[in-house]
Design a binder for these strands. Structure first.
Lengths: 276, 276
DNA sequence: GAGATAGCTTTATGTCATAAAGAAATAATC
DNA sequence: GATTATTTCTTTATGACATAAAGCTATCTC
């Protein structure tokens, strides 16, 4: 029998994530009474991450928000990694579970994706968390349940459905990540991303006067897309990311519609096997 | 006139990235002769990241590979951030610039995307690098030029084209990231991701006996997709990601074809240079 | 009360980036 | 050929971080 290293820790994590004991009155035990709750700690950590980014999230900083030292948190949570898992799953509760749209899966999925997009912009630190190993918390599953339910109205075959959902999620997170990360940088360096961009672009000209010859297609494209800033108050890079999100989403949904109408030749999984 | 904080550093970075002086014979200057080259340092850093992941990339570790202390690197490179920028742009030279496929933009783009996918799997650390602010290096532009050139064969209008390209890149990176991150974890914890997954799933049952009622759609879906393990030698999570990549890619390309045939009412504004 | 136990703080360890200062090597200048 | 300026590289120091270990303190059970 294989022994799974760290399974004890895993059990502790899962119990924390799914803990239903939140309402129980805490059976009187010997020892000093706890002055904090896990919820308080997780909330403080989320508030900190929202306000100052993932880089500022240290055990000491979270403890300080609660009038404790950083070490005090270790009685509630095994370590920072587990705290981040809890933050991750907790904040996902904000993602709507029943977006409007009725029977129209496309309209519903569009609305839901936009909510998810806005959610990520509200909590940009979420995009910096490694997805190496799924957290498997209740709210993550709720979110998955929601999007799968919406898309199952389309009639996509089961093996394709989950993968299409994952593809969509990757796209949304990817685009959101560019905004999230540009938003964080100004606080660190003191330069807005537009300023930064202009400075760099100028340097680019300086350092590669032959840009137009080396990269003809890009250069032509840049010329064709005239400068038209819809809203001067929103930073350029952010507007660009918003446009990318909306166009990419509609392209992807077009692709799903095509799949629904014309299931592909191959059974289930499509595409040639990877080389390698 | 606005003064850009850190522009001096930016100039140094850009010069390093685009430096054409690589072949020049180094004009004899006073002082000790340099024992290293930037290329050597960047190569060593890439080798280290390939072998042991981004977490193991410290200045000391890179220095040690070159028989120096970590501090020795600071005479060649302003700091770790700039070194990572150089690694980032340098390794992108591996992405093919002229994939086969001829006039068929869809076939060509498929092949190219698969190469990119394999590239990311070869260098998983690339996916952990913040895209906050574009590196704007020569190989990054070359890669962009390649994919834009391929897709410009489709006839998509200019404002849409770049955003579709960015959407595609986000999708590829997102899916690759899940593999990349699961691959790194085993080295750290000593547990393969399949083992880990198995252990966690068991715990999930234990902790939420009512899973099927709480998440009916997911549960039904999981049943419908019988276990279809094509290749026992490849970890399950990795196979799943591969399938997601191929299905998501073909769905997205279907969407592009739809756009090409039936240009939509009127998507929005365009803007200056490229995003990343 | 008397333990026992649990929350919390203090202190310590090791890792990291990188600043500061010094040692050593090398070219230009006298 | 000695001196000086300049550059590479090492040593040492600083401060941030996660977290282990040990101790203090409050509060329970007996």
């Amino acid at each position: 029998m294989v022994v799974f290293v760290g399974q004890g820790d895993a059990r502790r994590s899962m119990t924390l994530l799914w803990r239903a004991d939140r309402t129980e009155p805490a059976p009187a035990r010997p020892g000093r009474r706890p002055g904090l709750t896990i919820d308080e700690i997780v909330d403080a950590a989320i508030a900190l991450a929202d306000a100052r980014g993932m880089a500022a999230l240290s055990m000491n900083a979270v403890g300080e928000r609660l009038g404790r030292t950083g070490m005090a948190l270790y009685t509630y949570v095994p370590g920072k990694a587990e705290l981040v898992d809890l933050m991750y799953d907790r904040v996902l509760a904000e993602v709507p579970t029943d977006p409007p749209g009725g029977d129209d899966w496309r309209a519903t999925l569009t609305t839901w994706s936009e909510s998810l997009w806005e959610f990520y912009l509200r909590h940009p630190w979420m995009l910096q968390i490694s997805h190496a190993r799924a957290v498997l918390g209740p709210n993550e599953y709720t979110m998955l349940e929601t999007v799968v339910r919406i898309l199952s109205g389309s009639g996509l075959p089961a093996p394709v459905l989950m993968r299409v959902v994952n593809s969509l999620l990757h796209f949304v997170r990817g685009v959101a990540r560019t905004i999230a990360e540009t938003r964080q940088a100004p606080g660190v360096t003191g330069v807005s991303d537009d300023q930064w961009w202009y400075a760099r672009s100028a340097l680019l000209d300086e350092v590669t006067p032959d840009f137009a010859e080396r990269f003809p297609t890009i250069s032509r494209l840049a010329e064709e897309r005239a400068f038209e800033m819809a809203d001067e108050s929103v930073p350029y890079l952010e507007q660009e990311a918003r446009e990318t999100f909306h166009i990419g989403l509609s392209v992807f949904l077009d692709g799903i519609e095509t799949r629904v109408r014309r299931p592909p030749a191959g059974p289930g999984p499509a595409g040639p096997p990877t080389g390698r």
